[in-house]
C-alpha cells in the first residue's frame, strides 16, 4: 500500500514538473513575442496587428531556409534579420504615414496587412502544416518524463534574448533615448532625440524579435499561414493585462497569460483555456484599466 502511494506521489511530481516545464517554455516564447509588441506599442502608441504574421514569417523563413540545407542556428539569425528588414519596410510604407493621424488607421491598415500576408503565404506554400525538424532528438529523462533537448534550449535562448533586450533598454545610450521617447516624445525631441529614427528602430527591433520567436518556435508548433493569429491575440492579452508601463510588464503579463493557458490546457482543454484566459483578462480590465503593472508610466524612466 505504502509502495503504491509512493509511486503515485512520484508520478504526480513528475507530471507536475513536466507541466511546469511546458508552461515555462510557452511563457518564454510568448514573452518574446509580446516584448516586441510592447516596444512598438509603448514607443509609438501603435498597435501592429500584423505582429503575429511577422512571427509566422519568421517560422516560414526558418522552414524555407532549412529545406535548402542551411544551418538551423544561422536560420534563427536570418529570420530575425529578414523579418526585421520587413518591419522597416512596413514602418516606412504604412505606419509612418498613418500614425501622425493619431487615430486607429494604423490598426486598420496593419489588420489588412496581416490578412494580406497570411493569405499570400497560403497561396505560395499552401495551407497545409509544414514541419520544421528540430536540430536535436530526444532529451534527458526525469521522473519518467522526457524533456526534449530542443525545447530546453529554445526556452533558455528565449529568456536570454529577453534579458538582452532588457539590458539594451536599461543600460545603453540607445535604451535611454528609447525610454525618453516613450515617456515624453515631445520633450525627447526637444532634447535632441531623433524620435522618428527611434520609432523606426523600435519597429524594426520589435519585428526582428517576432521573427526570431517564430523561427525559434517553428520546431515546436505546426507551421501554418494562420499561426500568427493565436500569437498576436495572446500577445495583446499580455499587453492588456500588464499595461505598457515598463519593459518588465511584458514578462509579468506573459507569465500570467501563458502560464494560465498552459496550466488549464494540461488540466482540462485548450479551447476552454483560451476562453477562461480571455474572461480573466477582460475582468481584470475592469479592476485595472491601464494594466496590472502599469504604474504611472514612470518605470520606463529607470
Amino acid at each position: 500500500m505504502g509502495h503504491l502511494a509512493m509511486m503515485f506521489a512520484a508520478v504526480n511530481t513528475g507530471l507536475l514538473l513536466k507541466q511546469l516545464f511546458n508552461a515555462t517554455s510557452a511563457v518564454s516564447l510568448l514573452a518574446l513575442v509580446a516584448i516586441g509588441l510592447f516596444i512598438i506599442f509603448g514607443m509609438m502608441k501603435v498597435i501592429n496587428m500584423a505582429h503575429g504574421e511577422l512571427f509566422m514569417l519568421g517560422a516560414y523563413t526558418m522552414w524555407w531556409l532549412l529545406a535548402r540545407g542551411i544551418n538551423f542556428w544561422l536560420n534563427l539569425l536570418a529570420a530575425a534579420l529578414v523579418v526585421g528588414l520587413f518591419g522597416v519596410i512596413v514602418e516606412r510604407l504604412i505606419v509612418q504615414r498613418l500614425y501622425v493621424r493619431g487615430d486607429l488607421s494604423t490598426l486598420l491598415a496593419t489588420f489588412g496587412l496581416s490578412i494580406l500576408l497570411q493569405r499570400g503565404v497560403a497561396i505560395a506554400f499552401g495551407d497545409r502544416p509544414q514541419f520544421v525538424t528540430s536540430p536535436f532528438t530526444g532529451g534527458p529523462t526525469l521522473l519518467g518524463n522526457t524533456y526534449p533537448t530542443y525545447q530546453i534550449i529554445a526556452t533558455v535562448l528565449a529568456f536570454a534574448v529577453i534579458a538582452a533586450v532588457v539590458v539594451l533598454f536599461l543600460k545603453t545610450d540607445f535604451g535611454l533615448r528609447a525610454r525618453a521617447t516613450i515617456v515624453n516624445p515631445a520633450m525627447a525631441a526637444a532634447l535632441a532625440v531623433n524620435t522618428v529614427r527611434m520609432n523606426a528602430l523600435s519597429f524594426a527591433l520589435g519585428s526582428a524579435l517576432a521573427g526570431f520567436a517564430g523561427a525559434l518556435a517553428a520546431p515546436l508548433v505546426s507551421v501554418v499561414p494562420a499561426m500568427g493569429l493565436d500569437w498576436v491575440i495572446r500577445a495583446f492579452l499580455v499587453v492588456i493585462v500588464a499595461g505598457a508601463g515598463s519593459i518588465w510588464a511584458a514578462a509579468g503579463g506573459a507569465a500570467i497569460v501563458g502560464g494560465w493557458e498552459a496550466g488549464f490546457t494540461a488540466i482540462y482543454d485548450a479551447t476552454y483555456a483560451q476562453i477562461t484566459v480571455l474572461a480573466i483578462v477582460w475582468a481584470l480590465v475592469l479592476l485595472r484599466p491601464r494594466g496590472l503593472f502599469s504604474g504611472t508610466g514612470r518605470r520606463w524612466r529607470r
Partner: peptide
C-alpha cells in the same frame, strides 16, 4: 469593461477580434 473602465480604444478592437476567434473555436 472597455467603455466603463475607459480603456484605450485599441483594447476593445483586440478583445472583439479575440471573442470572434474563440467563439469560432468553441
Amino acid at each position: 469593461p472597455a467603455f466603463k473602465a475607459r480603456t484605450l480604444p485599441v483594447y476593445y478592437a483586440l478583445i472583439t477580434l479575440a471573442v470572434a476567434l474563440i467563439l469560432q473555436r468553441w
